[in-house]
Design a protein around this nucleic acid. Sequence first.
DNA 1: TATACATTGTGATTTAAATCACAAAATGCC
DNA 2: GGCATTTTGTGATTTAAATCACAATGTATA
Lengths: 225, 225
Amino acid sequence: MKTDCTHCIYISDAAAKLAGCDLQLLSDNHIVVGFKKGDSIIKQGTYSTNVIFLRKGLVKIHITGPYSEQIVKLAKPPTYLGLPTTVGDKINQYSITALEDTEVCFIDMGTFKDLLKSNDEFAFEIIRSLCRYEIDSFRRCANRIQKQTRGNLAEVLLDMSKNIFSSDRFTIPLSQAEIGNLIDTSRESVSRMLSEFEKDGIIRMQGKHLEIINKRSLELISQNG
Amino acid sequence: MKTDCTHCIYISDAAAKLAGCDLQLLSDNHIVVGFKKGDSIIKQGTYSTNVIFLRKGLVKIHITGPYSEQIVKLAKPPTYLGLPTTVGDKINQYSITALEDTEVCFIDMGTFKDLLKSNDEFAFEIIRSLCRYEIDSFRRCANRIQKQTRGNLAEVLLDMSKNIFSSDRFTIPLSQAEIGNLIDTSRESVSRMLSEFEKDGIIRMQGKHLEIINKRSLELISQNG
DNA sequence: TATACATTGTGATTTAAATCACAAAATGCC
DNA sequence: GGCATTTTGTGATTTAAATCACAATGTATA
């Protein structure tokens, strides 16, 4: 499906810098594709010639580590995905999988490069976002490694609440096993810790639906391990 | 000290794309500064208005995590440092410290931005390198977390040998405590593991000087934990 | 050269979290 | 609705690695 970028409500910060004609170029060289929950959007090791713009939904970025699959981060719209692949060696260096029903734009790489070249504001926004990603990734890694597991779980819950769902009540988009490989712990530990949080009156759970009752406690746990 | 970029032997891949006049602009708007081993080049939390180009030496990039200082990665020339800071919010998000006597160019941020805007090849090279950093950082984080400590230590030694010193004999530029916070383990564990590697005839050590005797073993340890 | 400070080596003990093992729910599907 | 598969809960046991404690080096520098 083709859509008109000039009136798209899902537009990126970078694309917002594009002038009408460049935006038209973008319009003419992309297709919108829908993915269902669980669908693989890009797969590590495969060849790719598109930049992907996440316009709607929620995805996980994961890589196959030396032993197991590891979720690197969750990404929500609006954001470009798979930039490193496209600009680098064209082989996907990580996988991206939909956690909810998701819509993305596949943008032709040649077009994307042309835009970078012809529009310096666009390029600068892309550079800005890549820089942000790098810092985020340093920070995330340091946190994961230094904090104890409880702290990491608390942080993930807060992060979902604040940055992804903007609400104290939401449905966790991951299984406990997935949470485990996001915060580098075992499935069993996640289960135990969630029970503990619930017992302590910090959260309330019904299946995957979670409500944060005592945000302050959760923040303290997140900070102090 | 000012130097002439048009004949600089330390030039970056990105700057190599610059035409004469742009290179002259770069020449006119940077200064070269030397740092001694141990000197702080940029300090997390401080204000910065320069992009830094590492032209000679060796540095560590480290951030203050929730509990302790963590070395994120080592960087060797030629590379830009502190790009995220400059392009982002101007507050340094990490510290950079010289591990050897080091020379860097402080490049005026305005000039750098002008170059990005006026020269798309330059901008594209910068984007390319940022993308590489992101993937490296995903990979590093997954390795650190999944591998056991022995595997991480082996990997760091191999990395130094291969990518930094290009030799099987080199002087480790870090204390054991620093190695510990590069691979997220305690100083004591590093000491014990190095002794073990030496006992097993995999490496030979005299103070900080290290020689890799059995590279194959080290690779196996790196892969299998 | 003597003195202080930082780095390293190694044993003993503790600890957080993984793993193993199995039951109970929940979910999807024919 | 009933059957299979995935997900979750919880106890018992094991384990890698941290921490503690202290001695022995090394290395700056006054």
